[in-house]
Write a protein that binds this DNA or RNA. Structure first.
Length: 284
DNA sequence: CACCATGTTCCTTG
DNA sequence: CCAAGGAACATGGT
């Protein structure tokens, strides 16, 4: 469930649940997700530690932990990959098939499960240093965005997925933001005007903020495995009965009418990923 | 069986 | 050296 808005909503959900909880023991069922941290080091560092904070950076979660009586804060980095989930469950419930890491917290346990094991839960936090700006970072102006885009001839859609440029945009919200800004996904990054870049940055922020608001409003079951559980790509804001009615404008809507002009939404492949767009509303 | 999937990293090619 | 493209990772859904 993994672009910036989903991770942000998850962080807000988990923060109060984990805060103050002490890790009694750690079960690693798939060592791959800890890499390059070893299972023994992971267990040694985490056992007895207390959760004292939780932050999001891009699509990453940063858990802050502290051993009793110690000053130093230990950082644990989480990433959900494509199919990762993190949630708390009562201690006695059976583990899901793809549980990768389980932290026993007493009455409850913290579960990281991931059907495809593309995600991470590791003490190696080096990935965060490589990230670009947060979309709302005051230091990240349209001018700076524009200068970054100037250095590449790649299609703008592909550049939006570059986490070193701007952190947190994934395949769904890249298409949505470009539709919102009226920019063709095919447009070369270095050929976008400053004025268009301003529209694009505003669109990215708006699309992300609306998704966060949506995810904060609709009922979510983070432990569930049904389609809308813990996800809100397909949610509609406010707790209306039809909350999983399509909310996105173009993503996964190939062949359906554009919400703007009524002409069919198209799908194409860029850098081996699907892009959805309206050829009429998004000119080159 | 074929093809698709919210992400990142590594290898190859030009 | 760099940018760009594609495969790999591993599993499940349609």
């Amino acid at each position: 469930m993994p672009e910036l808005p989903e991770v942000e909503v998850l962080a807000r959900h988990l923060r109060p649940l984990l805060n103050g909880k002490i890790i009694r023991s750690v079960e690693v069922r798939r060592a791959k997700v800890l890499q390059p941290t070893s299972v023994s080091r992971f267990q040694k560092e985490l056992c007895g530690a207390k959760f004292v904070g939780l932050h999001r950076r891009g699509k990453y979660l940063l858990f802050e932990l502290r051993q009793t009586g110690e000053r130093e804060i230990l950082l644990l980095l989480g990433h959900l990959g494509m199919t990762g989930r993190m949630y708390l469950a009562p201690k006695h419930v059976p583990l899901p098939k793809h549980a990768a890491v389980v932290m026993h917290l007493g009455a409850r346990k913290f579960i990281y499960e991931d059907a495809r094991y593309f995600g991470r839960l590791t003490l190696d936090i080096s990935a965060v240093e490589k990230l670009g700006a947060e979309p709302w970072d005051n230091n990240f102006s349209a001018e700076r965005f524009y200068k970054k885009l100037k250095t590449s001839r790649q299609p703008v859609k592909v550049k939006l997925l570059d986490q070193a440029l701007i952190a947190g945009v994934g395949n769904i919200y890249a298409s949505e933001a470009l539709f919102r800004a009226g920019i063709s996904p095919r447009r070369a990054a270095n050929k976008i005007s400053l004025a268009r870049t301003e529209k694009l940055l505003a669109a990215i922020r708006a699309v992300m903020q609306e998704a966060i608001d949506c995810g904060s409003t609709i009922p979510l079951n983070f432990a569930g495995r049904q389609k809308p559980d813990g996800l809100f790509y397909f949610g509609r804001a406010a707790g209306t009965p039809d909350y999983y009615v399509e909310r996105l404008c173009v993503y996964d809507r190939a062949g359906q009418p554009c919400v703007n002009c009524g002409r069919p939404v198209k799908r194409m492949v860029q850098a081996a990923r699907s892009t959805f767009y309206c050829p009429h509303c998004q000119k080159e």
